[in-house]
């Protein structure tokens, strides 16, 4: 599976919310794995995979603001 790594980092709360709001594949992860206050955020998505400095999208969604 190709995964596109976002350059958002791990603390771009507004950016992650903005992207998720436009994403057709967003699916909330388990409550225990959610870290953003906005439910609709890449950081709370089941399909984000954390990396050392950011995350990648397992649904291969392009990260455009």
């Amino acid at each position: 599976m190709i995964q596109h790594e976002a350059d958002l980092g791990r603390n771009s709360w507004e950016g992650a919310a903005r992207i998720a709001a436009l994403c057709a594949t967003f699916h909330p992860d388990d409550e225990d794995e959610q870290i953003a206050d906005d439910l609709l955020s890449c950081y709370n998505c089941r399909y984000r995979r954390w990396t050392a400095v950011s995350f990648s999208c397992c649904k291969n969604m392009p990260f455009t603001n």
Partner: peptide, 18 residues
């Protein structure tokens, strides 16, 4: 309890490694 472990390219994990 949930415990976060290291996220590293050499570690296989699904999405958060907890």
């Amino acid at each position: 309890t949930r415990h976060q472990l290291l996220v590293h390219p050499d570690i296989p994990y699904t999405s958060h490694n907890s």
